[in-house]
Design a protein around this nucleic acid. Structure first.
Length: 423
RNA sequence: GGAGAAAUGGCAGAGUGGUCGAAUGCGGCAGUCUUGAAAACUGUUGAGGGUCACACCUCCGGGGGUUCGAAUCCCUCUUUCUCCGCCA
């Protein structure tokens, strides 16, 4: 959520920056300022009414104590009008405040100055590439066929037990997945992230705090009986740890990592690109989350991308890094780097990590603040990134490490797996 | 799931209808003292709105109600604790 103060101070600059998202924000910003004006005027009126009412109440109290019941009675009658007035004003105020909130929720985050303009993922800017892209090998199989051939992932069985998009990992497939989780967590903790385990269901306030609600309601599974949501990413429970907190500047940096399953309804996305592990309703992910001082958040973002690079370098997977363009940038992010692994058999790139700086956008919703060096309260910056999304890493390994006779295991994972070959 | 008790500022803990945004203690911050530190002493110390700055308004778990007036009374929800039941 954008800060009202900023909208008041630099409306034009914000509107200009939001154009990168192909959003003509000026009418919304004007509407917001108008509602803001109304809100303050109504608030002032209400405050004055309440002030008068408070004054009378005190006088009545004093009169009663000094036994002047008659005079008190007279004053009592006067308060009736004030009560009526403040009730009306209060109702008006809440209508205006709600309208103002709704306008604010509509606005996405302002893109960072380095974000390229663009409409879709085709306009994302490739900023880094590592590893050779093997040309399509004769006889190379896509991962879903490899999974079947070596009996390590059973998609049909998942359909039987739950439905499409809920695969069942078996034997060495399950073990490889567990090895990856452990490897990622070990690397993250070695890099200074504190490992935590968090709930897999969150309440509405949490969904709202990180920006999943109210906009992306349909993407989350909702447990109506208890009004809880299955998490679409560990970002939600981890970041919400800091909701309504006022930190000290010396608490920074805050670095957390956690493994969780992630649940996404993925309503409306079907077709060839969702085969196999490409897009699932339930998948595992290790996440890193940081809360930073505004002055250092972009250095933190670089630090995070370097960390993800190291993971992929060690796994020796061919990958590239994209700077997302305005049109592809998530609603709440100011700047996002996507990491993509090359899927040899599918001849396409698969997103395996998304590292973002949300600046104050989430913090404003979360009321996540800190006391700066001068004792002033200001909003913190939040960041997060996948390190990494398991299914697509798995797909990348299966496809890139396949041989005629089986699948080799990346060297760094062998100690975690206890085997070096799947056949 | 049943029965009971409770929820107050960073923490502990007073406050049961009127000047209470809230005693007191601890903690935090600043100062005095000291070569420095500790101790002691003095001052200061919740959040939000509003204002150039004041004034002023709101907030004592959430929501609603009674009253001229609510931290205090009533209803309701949530959470915590104790006992019983069930359970990995």
């Amino acid at each position: 959520m954008l800060q009202l103060q900023e909208i008041r101070n630099q409306k034009e600059a914000l509107a200009e920056a939001l154009k990168k998202r192909n959003l003509e924000a000026l009418p919304i910003l004007d509407k917001i300022l108008e509602l803001d004006e109304q809100r303050r005027a109504t608030q002032t009126e209400l405050d004055n009414t309440l002030a008068e009412s408070n004054k009378l109440s005190k006088e009545i109290g004093i009169l009663f104590k000094s036994g002047k019941a008659e005079e008190a009675k007279e004053l009592k009658e006067k308060t009736a009008t004030l009560k009526e007035q403040s009730k009306t004003l209060n109702e008006q105020l809440s209508i205006i405040a709600t309208a103002l909130q709704q306008e604010l929720y509509q606005l996405p985050n302002v893109p960072h100055s380095s974000v390229p303009a663009g409409n879709s993922d085709e306009d994302n800017e490739e900023i880094f590439r590592e590893g050779n892209i093997p040309s399509l090998v004769e006889g190379a199989l896509p991962h879903w066929e490899l999974a079947k051939k070596y009996d390590i992932i059973d998609f049909e069985l998942g359909v039987k037990v739950t439905g499409a998009g809920f695969p069942i990992y078996k034997g060495k497939g399950a073990r490889l997945q567990r090895a990856l989780i452990q490897y990622f967590l070990d690397k993250n903790t070695a890099a200074g992230y504190t490992e935590i385990q968090v709930p897999h269901l969150v309440n509405e306030a949490s969904g709202f705090g990180t920006g999943q609600l109210p906009d992306k309601e349909g993407q989350m599974y909702h447990v109506g009986e208890d009004d809880l949501y299955l998490i679409p990413t560990a970002e939600v429970p981890i970041t919400n740890i800091f909701r309504d907190e006022i930190l000290n500047a010396k608490d920074f940096p805050i670095k957390y990592t956690g493994y969780t399953p992630c649940f996404r309804r993925e309503a409306g996305s079907y077709g060839a690109h969702v085969r196999g592990l490409n897009r699932l309703h339930q998948f595992d992910k290790v996440e890193i989350v940081r809360v930073e001082h505004p002055d250092t958040s972009y250095a933190a973002l670089e630090d995070m991308t370097n960390h993800i690079k190291e993971l992929l370098n060690e796994l020796k997977l061919p990958y590239r890094i994209l700077r997302l363009c305005g049109g592809d940038l998530g609603f709440t992010a100011a700047l996002t780097y996507d990491f993509e692994v090359f899927s040899t058999a599918q001849d396409r790139w698969l997103e395996i990590s998304s590292v973002s700086n949300f600046e104050t956008y989430q913090a404003n919703r979360l009321k996540l603040r800190f006391k700066d060096e001068n004792g002033k309260k200001q909003l913190a910056h939040t960041l997060n990134g996948s390190s990494l999304a398991l299914p697509r890493v798995l797909a990348g390994i299966l496809e890139n490490y396949q041989t005629e006779n089986g699948i080799r295991i990346p060297e760094v994972l062998v100690p975690y797996c206890g085997f070096d070959f799947i056949d």
